[in-house]
Design a protein around this nucleic acid. Structure first.
Lengths: 224, 224
DNA sequence: CAGGCGTGTGACGCGTTTGTGACTGCTTTT
DNA sequence: AAAAGCAGTCACAAACGCGTCACACGCCTG
């Protein structure tokens, strides 16, 4: 039996129990600022409120897109009212589509079933374009002039973080923290090895070297 | 309680009252051509419109960076549409990042909260523009008319210190202390070599000589 | 359980950076 | 005019920082 996992950032007025319908099992779960509480199999659907208690909805959306666990989720933004500007922003933040709230259980299911039956292809959403370099957060893929760069998970995270902070010297400590490495404490020299591997990967894809070493300080992603 | 000071170059459609959210006090203020109207404590965030009534946004951006009072501000440029050229120009002019407008109160708060919650300590971007010379403290890069000057760490520190104290004679001792050299005690004559190397580097980038020797006293960064 | 992959680390070697003494040439002083 | 003072420059050695390699460990897969 198929499973459909639905995550919401806020409580629904109505009940949230899992149930089975039409040969599919629907599960509901809360979605916190740190992302989904549990890992699931099967397609994920996330509904993000425009306003949230702890975190702006757009930021939540971006985080979902950045989180490797939810990269394949279909993200729907919940708008309070039909503002064209907000719609555009929502999509730009990585949402796949939007509904005009408030959210009811019926609205959620309508959405999911409609899209499922239509077999929507989730198009790539969150994308950086920095010169010749493109970073596709949804597909977890980086390209240099359309040429895919073969990156290991850590290298991808590193590139993403550098690209998010262009033209800014990042110390080795910044980079370690930026990749969320805590335990065990990482030796700063290890960052050199990361950079080396990342550079080699970009080069192997025919790319240049956007990563500048700043002696005795750190590294910069050079833009322009 | 933390204070977050937000400055804008144009009116927001929505209300602009100060308010408290999430343990932080947000204050809003207008940003005129002369810079911020008041001095504040705590982090500053400036949002500069691409088009402004009295002044081009880019010029405004440069002025903010040159203004000692706002040097520690995080400057966000507000673009009307997503033009890659404009983005690069904005960053060149000293902006830390940009948003695609128009600006709403929500967009502003998104930006501020998103950046505040990010891992990196965003040390304030300091950017000098002294005639043809530009010093980008974030990227640790100096340019002469857009032409990068290739500086070694010590030379960059020297240039920075000189540029921070323009039109003022700095003794060799000042310079040694200004660069934070303590151990072992540095021979004063060594400063001459530093200056020589710095001059050569600027020249190599097609630049002039803003460093004037004051016989038996020290050196000055000449402005104007 | 073997094999492959991703990743962190210590070690090695090389290029770069940098402080210094010496030499040179210009300027000021006597 | 000679002497003293001062700054510009060069060459060099030592120290430093970075790139890279090989290896070990953990994890997943077949």
């Amino acid at each position: 039996m198929d499973v459909v996992n639905i995550f919401l950032t806020s409580e629904l007025g109505e009940s949230l129990e899992d149930f089975v319908h039409d040969q599919r099992r629907f599960t509901f779960d809360r979605l916190g600022p740190e992302g989904p509480r549990r890992l699931v199999e099967g397609p994920m659907w996330a509904f993000v409120d425009w306003v949230m208690p702890e975190l702006a909805g757009l930021e939540m959306c971006r985080r979902l897109r950045a989180d490797a666990r939810t990269v394949d989720a279909h993200v729907t933004m919940v708008l309070e009212e039909d503002d064209p500007e907000d719609r555009r922003r929502a999509l730009r933040a990585g949402a796949d589509d939007y509904v005009i709230g408030p959210l009811t259980r019926t609205a959620v299911l309508d959405r999911v079933l409609a899209l499922q039956s239509r077999g929507v292809e989730r198009q790539a959403t969150r994308r950086f374009e920095l010169g010749a370099l493109t970073i596709d957060m949804a597909a977890l893929q980086a390209r240099w002039n359309e040429q895919p760069i073969l990156l290991r998970p850590n290298e991808f995270r590193l590139l993403r973080f550098l690209a998010e902070n262009p033209n800014r010297v990042l110390t080795r400590e910044d980079l370690i923290n930026g990749l969320g490495k805590r335990e065990p404490p990482i030796d700063e020299r290890t960052v050199d090895v990361w950079i080396g591997r990342l550079r080699r990967a970009i080069k192997a894809a025919g790319g240049g070297n956007p990563l500048r070493t700043v002696r005795s300080l750190g590294y910069v992603f050079d833009l322009g």
